[in-house]
Amino acid sequence: MSSAAFAPASIAVSDLRLERGGKTVLTGFSLTVEPGEALVLLGPNGSGKTTLLRALGGLVRPLRGEIGMDPQTVAFLGHADALKPSETVEQSLQFWAGLYGGDASQLDAVMVQMALAHLARRSCGTLSAGQKRRTALARIALSNRPVWLLDEPAAPLDARSRERLAALVQSHCQAGGSVIAATHVDLGWQGARVEDLRPAPTQTAAGVG
Rank of each mutant, 00 (worst) to 15 (best):
A117F: 02
L142R: 00
R121E: 11
R139Q: 14
G125Y: 05
D151T: 12
L150I: 14
R122A: 14
S123T: 15
N144P: 03
S143W: 03
Q131F: 06
R145D: 03
S123I: 12
R121I: 02
P146D: 05
T135H: 11
R145C: 03
R139P: 01
R133C: 08
L119T: 01
M114H: 10
R121P: 00
L127N: 00
L119E: 03
R121K: 14
R139Y: 06
L127Q: 00
N144K: 01
R121N: 11
L150A: 13
G130S: 09
T126Y: 01
R122W: 04
H118G: 06
L127A: 01
S143F: 02
G130T: 10
T135N: 10
R133A: 04
K132Y: 10
T135K: 05
A138I: 03
T126H: 07
S128P: 09
T126R: 08
A117P: 00
A138L: 09
Q131C: 06
N144A: 14
A136R: 09
S143A: 11
S128V: 05
A138R: 02
R139W: 08
R133T: 07
L116R: 02
R122Q: 15
A141E: 10
I140H: 11
V147Q: 08
W148T: 07
L116K: 01
R122S: 12
A120H: 09
N144E: 12
Q131N: 06
A117H: 11
T135D: 07
L142V: 01
S123E: 15
L149C: 13
S143P: 13
A120D: 12
L149S: 13
G130K: 12
A120M: 08
S123D: 12
G130D: 09
A136I: 08
D151I: 14
R121T: 10
A117V: 02
R134F: 04
T135A: 15
M114A: 09
A117Y: 02
Q131G: 05
R121H: 13
P146W: 11
T135P: 14
G130M: 09
L127K: 00
L142F: 00
V147L: 15
A120N: 10
L149G: 14
A115G: 07
A136G: 10
M114K: 04
R133P: 09
A136D: 11
L137H: 02
L150W: 15
T135R: 07
L116W: 02
L142H: 01
A138T: 05
